[in-house]
Design a protein around this nucleic acid. Structure first.
Lengths: 265, 265
DNA sequence: CGTTTGATTGACACGAGTCAACACCAGTGG
DNA sequence: CCACTGGTGTTGACTCGTGTCAATCAAACG
């Protein structure tokens, strides 16, 4: 598997669309964790021929849009977001390379969230019908997609716990831990550190806080010697200590993948 | 379809197990929304032969348990819960009749939450292998289960928004709205009201608040003339007003079901 | 009855939000 | 080259929503 360096994410992308590039990451998550065989991987990669480059901070999918297509994130960071009546924003999901931006679009004809890029991204656009064909024709792909849906469920459940019952510093620490594990899984972390391209305001939207409070909370974690954040690069200095502080247990991210699942049989 | 009256939920249940009762509700949610045919419904009902009655406030599934079975809630209220290190509890999901208590158990061999009954319940216990067989043999059952997973996703996402960006009174109002819609869908609401068997502490665990604050917040909503809560029965007095107050839009509950979904083809 | 569980209330503490100012840096254009 | 700009990070003073602790009340129950 290709190692993806953090800098790759920030390298300038050609705008517009480009076809035929090898979407090496396209199948990463599904492939690494989905227990797919060679045949399924080939079929998937073939379906990912329509690859587009999008700049940072753009709306990929508008709220309540009905798209008819599914977006697979190949490179860069993105997020799902929801707005409340009075204008504040919540990010329920951070999307990393290998994630499906709008997995609900496979079965729903209308999303109830928007998707925005945070950095420049490369995205594979798959017609929904194609995805349904694939998962009907290759039961393992269907299973892998269902499995991904459940992992998202698991992650959302943990976020609910964080939002409901953890203090700001625990929550922020928890997010840093989660990102380390998820990024490491796709080869984007090294040395307990990773590129963190989020502004404090974006962090705040993910944590349900204000950017001012994120700032102060971040300083707490720094002062405690748990993390270091320098020019967009975050390093976790005390892994065990920060895990304890955050109450972080990576089990909810299902690092074992689908292979060990009952479905494998 | 049988109308289920609120009182049914609270009627005394015989403890132990009883086999062969018609699990009329068993397929309700899957059947109503899942776009299943007669054949699938029969197969599902056959699989629901092992029905058990459980008292209120019992652990149905312990946290981190590996069960090998899946629980389908037929009657009563239950919840999923998670505990943090310092003992506080968060309820990420309230389970109503027709819900699958531990849907993740279909693909994961270990849950990352516990399931507890809130009232006396009747539950169908299905071996996981049986569920997998069913969804392999009847693609529509598989699709319906995947669809249910996605609806849970959608609901969790909305809860994240509530926890992150809504004030206590908005959040409580939102929960009341959600419960009305969900209960109405299974025939357990009438006249904009329903039996609400939750203590204020349980409400607090779902809302990420303390029971004291739930109490005060509830009084606000009462004083505003939006709701009435009398002897365990909640009535929404001003539907439009409370929807506005809460920022509630039922779309995220996918009331249209799977029929209208792209998968139906 | 006493016991228990849940609802209610009050006084007070504290975490997080708000508002505003300032610092810093990368671009940008004159 | 430098002034200007806009976005982001940082800090302080103050407000306010929610938590904490504790007492009391009401209803359910054995």
């Amino acid at each position: 598997m290709k190692q993806v360096h953090a800098n790759d994410v920030e390298r300038p992308n050609q705008p517009g669309r480009s076809t035929g590039e090898r979407p090496s990451l396209a199948t990463t998550r599904l492939w690494l964790f989905g227990g797919l065989g060679e045949e399924e991987r080939t079929a998937l990669e073939a379906a990912c021929s329509d690859v587009r480059a999008i700049e940072g901070k753009q709306d990929l999918v508008k709220e309540r849009a009905s798209t008819g297509v599914v977006h697979l994130l190949l490179e860069g960071w993105a997020c799902r977001y929801k707005l409340t009546g009075n204008g504040s924003r919540q990010i329920p999901t951070l999307l990393l390379p290998g994630d499906i931006c709008d997995i609900d679009a496979i079965l729903f004809d209308r999303l109830d969230y928007g998707v925005a890029t945070l950095t420049p991204c490369r995205v594979a656009v798959l017609p929904r019908a194609r995805v349904l064909e694939l998962s009907a024709r290759y039961p393992r792909i269907g299973a892998a997609l269902w499995w991904l849906t459940m992992v998202e469920n698991s992650t959302l459940t943990e976020w609910v716990l964080c939002l409901g019952r953890r203090s700001a510093d625990q929550h922020l620490a928890h997010l840093f831990c989660e990102l380390l594990v998820r990024l490491a899984a796709v080869g984007m972390a090294e040395n307990n550190g990773y590129a963190l391209p989020l502004t404090q305001e974006q962090l705040a939207d993910a944590l349900g806080l204000t950017s001012v409070h994120v700032n102060r909370t971040l300083q707490q974690l720094r002062k405690a010697g748990l993390v270091e954040l320098d020019r967009g690069r975050l390093r976790i200095l005390e892994w065990e200590a920060i895990k304890r502080r955050a109450g972080f247990d990576p089990a909810y991210l299902r690092p074992e993948g689908l292979r060990r699942s009952p479905m494998a049989a």
